[in-house]
Design a protein around this nucleic acid. Structure first.
Length: 576
RNA sequence: GCCCCCGUAGCUCAGUGGAUGAGAGCAGCGGGUUUCUACCCCGUCGGUCGCAGGUUCGAGUCCUGCCGGGGGCGCCA
């Protein structure tokens, strides 16, 4: 463990247990504005054992446990202990991190199989900003969980089944495959869907064909399935282009569409039946998940089978949970889906729990998120009033980044500029989405997103590029300073070192709440700490050994920046 | 009608039950530095943390009730 706060906690744990009569007590070590750290545990402990908190705190100070790590210990206020770390202690911790490829990030205590359900676009429908959120948050959670050693299974639950496919397939036939293929692969999914929908609304003949086609599809009619597959393939090709541009990990191997769970529903339904949970209600077969009520105060049903005998999407989601738990061996399932689905998912999870399919310690979590709003604080719309195409958003982000780079760093040639513009534009967009608490709505704003100041992607990337620039200018290899001793003499060096050492804790906090914005806040603080250091502590102009020490500190900072941005799915360019 | 989520500076947002200093960025005003890339530093302006209770040694943070905004509540997915 390299985080000094965590080290402190570990160091104090036995003493706190002693003071608590043998049972464990949390020393509660926290960051402090008044010192390097503060120990708050004496207050809670005093209450528990009926002692004076200041006396307890004094006992902790007098124990001598901290003499090697702290130069100053002070009991303050009602019983806080302010800790100032010794530079030698911090320098030693830093040396451990610098020598560690993982930068101090230890594998999780308990390694799990984690299934992450995210992105989930609909076949033959455009991806919009909601998919951006799911895709970007999910991608980051995948990377974060992998980084601490979990086995992660990505599942892209695309909407590739259901009633709309009757009309979509008929429209495909009307257009002819080649024409349809052109349109869809060009990314005109909205046009295709809207045309089909318009025909469905206008023509009874078309409606009839669509209905018959649904029956054929669900009956497994091979010629129909061929057409359906074409539709799915064309859409997937388009989705993949968006994923490539977005620089996320999803591939065809991760597809787990709704169609996959269709054959499993009968079996799940039978198991529901056998469990005795099914009830007949108004002709439908339902389960009443515990704790849910409808508008009349009666139990709220989750419909497993409709009056007409069709399985519902809730049934499909049950099958999905069962598949993930029983076939994939999931210990943890993350559903990165918008917050309007909260109640639906809670009901599905509750039914799974009642049926015994979802039992401790296996866990299903709805990782919900809010909307992207326009300047008018309403759901973001295009000028025409439609939802905004994700693909257009990505293109605009890159264009704007390219223009900014051309203006601010004209030395970069057009080819490099485009590559960097992709990193900066897409990174800015992702960071903007990830950097606020996911459950809240956020207001979309190009200028704030691409600003070089403040809590933005470009600012963080710039801090990284700047460090690379120092090494380029001095013609020194980054790795060559990696084993050098880092001396912490200036306050800015200390602050930066403390921040670097807190990296593993930042990742833990992020994982605990499935909240990438906590990592964003950390990276931003790291970048600001570096900027202060950069401002106050000349690197190349310093004499040895300070020069090499500062180069090593800068190098380590760049490594943590690159690594942490990587966990957010953002690339750190070497120049920009 | 019931349920869920949100409410912190003019704006956009952080804030792990801890300190009669609640922070950042932007915007505004006034300075400094303008050197290794666009940064950064200092000062200033700005807050009844939606309201009212409660729990606690201690509440922006936990609980209850209100107010405001958004969303969800049977055969679409």
């Amino acid at each position: 463990m390299s985080d000094p706060l965590a080290s402190l906690s570990t160091l104090l744990a036995p003493l706190f247990a002693d003071l608590n009569g043998g049972s464990p007590a949390d020393p509660t070590v926290r960051p402090s504005d008044r010192a390097d750290a503060q120990i708050n545990g004496a207050l809670a402990l005093a209450k528990q054992v009926g002692a004076n908190p200041r006396d307890l705190a004094q006992q902790v100070v007098d124990s001598g446990l901290l003499t090697d790590v702290a130069t100053d210990l002070e009991v303050a206020g009602p019983g806080f202990i302010n800790v100032t770390f010794s530079s030698s202690f911090l320098e030693a911790e830093l040396a451990v991190v610098a020598a560690d490829e993982r930068l101090g990030v230890a594998p999780a205590a308990e390694l799990k199989t984690v299934v992450v359900d995210y992105s989930a676009p609909n076949v033959a429908k455009e991806m919009h900003v909601g998919h951006l959120r799911s895709t970007v948050i999910g991608d980051s959670l995948v990377r974060l969980h992998e980084s601490v050693g979990h086995t992660v299974i990505r599942e892209n639950h695309i909407g590739d089944w259901g009633r709309p496919f009757g009309m979509l397939i008929e429209h495909l036939l009307d257009l002819g495959e080649d024409v349809a293929s052109d349109g869809l692969s060009q990314g005109d999914l909205d046009g295709f869907y809207k045309q089909a929908n318009a025909k469905f609304n206008d023509s009874e003949e078309f409606q009839e064909r669509a209905r018959e086609r649904v029956v054929l599809l669900q009956g497994g009619d091979e010629p129909t399935l061929v057409l359906w597959r074409r539709l799915v393939e064309m859409s997937n090709a388009y989705f993949n282009r968006v994923y490539t541009k977005l620089d996320v990990l999803l591939t065809d191997d991760d597809l787990a569409g709704e169609s996959r769970y269709q054959p499993l529903m009968e079996g799940v339904y039978e198991r529901l039946e056998a469990s005795g949970l099914l009830h007949e209600d108004d002709g439908a077969m339902v389960v009443y998940p515990a704790g849910f009520k409808n508008r009349d105060g009666d139990p709220l049903p989750m419909i497993a089978k409709s009056q007409t005998g069709a399985f519902m999407y809730a049934t499909s989601d049950l099958a999905c949970v069962v598949d993930r738990v029983e076939r994939l061996g999931a210990d943890l399932m993350l559903y990165v889906i918008g917050s309007p689905q909260a109640q639906h998912l809670q009901m599905v999870f509750e039914v799974c729990a009642m049926a015994g399919w979802l039992q401790e310690p296996t866990e299903a979590v709805h990782v919900g998120f809010g909307n992207v709003l326009g300047e008018d604080r309403k759901m973001m719309r295009s000028r025409a009033g439609d939802s905004v195409k994700l693909a257009d958003l990505l293109d605009e982000a890159v264009e704007r980044a390219e223009a900014a780079i051309a203006e601010k760093n004209p030395d970069i040639g057009p080819d490099d500029r485009l590559v960097i513009a992709n990193m900066v534009g897409i990174g800015a967009l992702k960071y903007f989405d990830l950097s606020t608490e996911r459950i809240k709505d956020y207001v979309f704003d190009w200028d704030r997103m691409l600003a070089f100041e403040g809590n933005t992607g470009p600012y963080l990337q710039y801090a990284h590029a700047r460090i690379c620039s120092i090494f380029r200018r001095a013609d020194i290899g980054r790795a060559s300073v990696r084993a050098a001793h880092i001396a912490l003499d200036q306050p800015q060096e200390r602050a930066l070192a403390m921040r670097l050492l807190a990296y593993p804790s930042a990742i833990d906090n992020t994982l605990d709440s499935y909240s990438p914005h906590k990592l964003c806040t950390y990276v931003y603080e790291l970048a600001t700490d570096f900027s202060s250091f950069y401002q106050e502590c000349p690197i190349l102009k310093s004499d040895e050994p300070v020069r090499t020490s500062r180069l090593a500190l800068a190098d380590l900072t760049a490594r943590v920046l690159e690594h942490s941005l990587g966990l957010l799915g953002i690339t750190a360019p070497e120049q920009m």
